[in-house]
């Protein structure tokens, strides 16, 4: 049995028909081809599948696609419009905060939300803000440095 689903993803409206048990992660990756959202654990523990649901960061592996019906989703692909990088992208690249890159899309989205809500976080607050995203390569240090570099930016 399939159900109708309307999603606004990165500003584009999609109308789909999907079974009730499909996760948002599955639909983004396999129906819409948005492979920037990664699956690291499938259980909401690693944060690699983080997307923004109406500007709220969620583990898309824990959200049923139908729960997102009629709502607005931003994935990593939506953060770089027309090839232009978002400042969080630039900071991650510049500071060497990316190694294997598998946690990166989720980490960047969490960092963006953190900075949108708290433009002036302390180092401790940055670490707290990223606590839902695991990284096994970087030891977090250069990620924290990248986010710190954006504190109080004026754009």
């Amino acid at each position: 049995m399939k159900y109708p689903l309307k999603l606004s993803v990165n500003g584009v409206l999609f109308e789909l028909e999907i079974p009730a048990n499909r996760t948002l992660l599955d639909v983004l990756r396999n129906e819409l081809g948005l492979k920037g959202t990664k699956e690291g654990c499938g259980a909401g523990e690693c944060g690699a599948c983080t997307v923004l649901l109406d500007d709220e960061p969620v583990n898309s592996c824990l959200v049923l696609a139908l729960q997102a019906d009629g709502r607005r989703i931003t994935t990593i692909e939506g953060l770089s419009g027309a090839g232009k990088l978002h400042p969080v992208h630039e900071a991650f690249i510049h500071h060497g905060a990316i190694q294997c890159g598998f946690c990166t899309p989720g980490m960047i989205l969490s960092a963006k939300v953190l900075l949108d809500r708290h433009p002036n976080p302390t180092e401790r607050e940055i670490r707290e803000g990223l606590v839902g995203n695991l990284c096994r390569c970087t030891g977090y240090q250069k990620i924290v440095e990248a986010v710190s570099s954006l504190v109080n930016r004026k754009d």
Binding site: G36, L79, S80, L85, H89, G96, I98, G101, F102, I108
Partner: peptide
């Protein structure tokens, strides 16, 4: 220098 593939990885377009 940043990794030469950091841009693709950051934008989520690097294909794993």
């Amino acid at each position: 220098v940043p990794q030469i593939d950091a841009n693709e990885k950051a934008r989520g377009v690097a294909e794993f």
